[in-house]
Design a protein around this nucleic acid. Structure first.
Lengths: 135, 135
DNA sequence: GTAGATGCAAAGTATTTGCGACAAG
DNA sequence: CTTGTCGCAAATACTTTGCATCTAC
């Protein structure tokens, strides 16, 4: 069981305002990958006075603090998800937009190997698979 | 030796205007991955009357026709490159912004395998490695 | 008490689009 | 000819920011 977003804020010295608590709570409760609009809508239901500017400022702050991950899938708006230990990549259903998370150690290893081959130390990567569901 | 962009336009039924010829020519001559601004600047040197709206319209059309590939690297604007047979992925130098193209058959195979595992047929993918040059 | 956070509205970016004029097939 | 394209400027979509006020620590 990993730390809550609020605990992460404390340990990273991020000031915990009411607005941030609500945003943290909504992100933790989300099993999908909401974009800023969706997040703002969910947050508004809990506290309608929170502005969208605060939502933007907060996801940016959380991303920089390593609390959230930002994804920019093909032709779509930026989406966010809570970041926990286990790194994973995404398989996107091009018809429905459904997002499946997966882990493949072998691919991870090969990526590192490719970077090394060109004289680089891998610091980050992005792997997205786009597929159509088989019948 | 593969087809020129102009040949591709003909075979795909894309009308060849003067503006499109210039944009095609600039893209073919580019060894980097220009964004729309950069492309517009280069195009303007050849024909200063071409508007940026036309550049946007053309890269979109070329992308939809499978002539150009659009890339959206982390936190950067959309970049374009000419699409030829050999598919490749990108290794981005996070310090300099330099982009290295690479191919790794093994990773490609594993991607297909992952998609299959979840019951999907892989139709597209995006793999970007971000690294720091070793000294 | 003070540095940093918020809400609001205005300003930025990047990109798209309506429209009348124009050109390719 | 006719359909699609162009240039222009206005519109849109998403995100950031200046400023006065407020709040966590």
């Amino acid at each position: 069981m990993s730390e809550t977003i609020e605990q992460k804020c404390l340990s990273k010295g991020v000031k915990l305002t009411d607005q941030r608590k609500v945003i943290a709570q909504v992100m933790s409760a989300s099993t999908d990958h909401p974009n800023v609009d969706e997040l703002y809508n969910r947050v508004s239901k809990i506290d309608s006075k929170i502005s969208i500017a605060t939502v933007y400022r907060t996801v940016k702050l959380f991303e920089e603090s390593g609390i959230l991950a930002k994804h920019e899938f093909k032709g779509d708006k930026a989406r966010y998800e809570e970041l926990n230990e286990g790194h994973h990549d995404h398989l996107i259903d091009v018809k429905s937009g459904e997002i499946i998370e997966f882990v493949d150690e072998e691919i991870e290893k090969l990526q590192k190997k490719v970077a090394e081959k060109y004289g680089y130390t891998l610091v980050d990567h992005k792997l997205e698979l786009y597929g159509i569901k088989k019948k």
